[in-house]
C-alpha cells in the first residue's frame, strides 16, 4: 500500500506496539519483506515467552510493520529494516516502537 501523495500515511486501524529487548538484545519476532523483496514488511513469527509475545498490545504474526521508531520503512530493504529494529540507539529508553497494521 502506498502512502498518500502528500506523504501522510493513513492511520486507520493501526496499532502502536512497544517493547524492550531481552537480555540477549532480542525482541523475539521474525520479519520478512522489504523493498528488495518486493513485499511489505510482515511479522512472520512471534516466539512464545519473548518481549514481542508478552508486550501489550501483542505483536502478532501477519502484522504489517508500517513505522519503526517513527520511521516510515516502506522504501527500505530487508537488511535496512532489520538494522532499524536492532538499533535502539534512536531513543533513550531503549524501547522499540512499531506502528503496525494488524493482520
Amino acid at each position: 500500500e502506498k502512502s498518500t501523495p502528500n506523504g501522510i500515511i493513513p492511520h486507520d486501524n493501526l496499532v502502536i506496539v512497544r517493547m524492550r529487548p531481552d537480555e540477549n538484545g532480542r525482541f523475539g519476532f521474525n520479519v520478512k519483506g522489504g523493498s528488495d523483496q518486493k513485499m511489505p514488511v510482515i511479522v512472520s513469527r512471534v516466539a512464545p515467552g519473548t518481549p514481542a509475545d508478552q508486550c501489550v498490545p501483542r505483536l502478532n504474526e501477519g502484522d504489517q510493520v508500517v513505522l519503526i521508531n517513527g520511521r516510515d520503512i516502506a522504501d527500505y530493504t530487508h537488511d535496512q529494516v532489520v538494522s532499524f529494529i536492532k538499533c535502539s540507539c534512536e531513543n533513550n529508553s531503549n524501547e522499540l516502537i512499531l506502528l503496525v497494521r494488524p493482520n
Binding site: 521474525n30 512472520s44 530487508h78 532489520v82 529494529i85
Partner: peptide, 12 residues
C-alpha cells in the same frame, strides 16, 4: 522468465 522464490525472514 523464471523468478527466484526465495523469501528471507530474519529473527530480531
Amino acid at each position: 522468465e523464471e523468478k527466484d522464490e526465495c523469501i528471507i525472514a530474519t529473527e530480531v
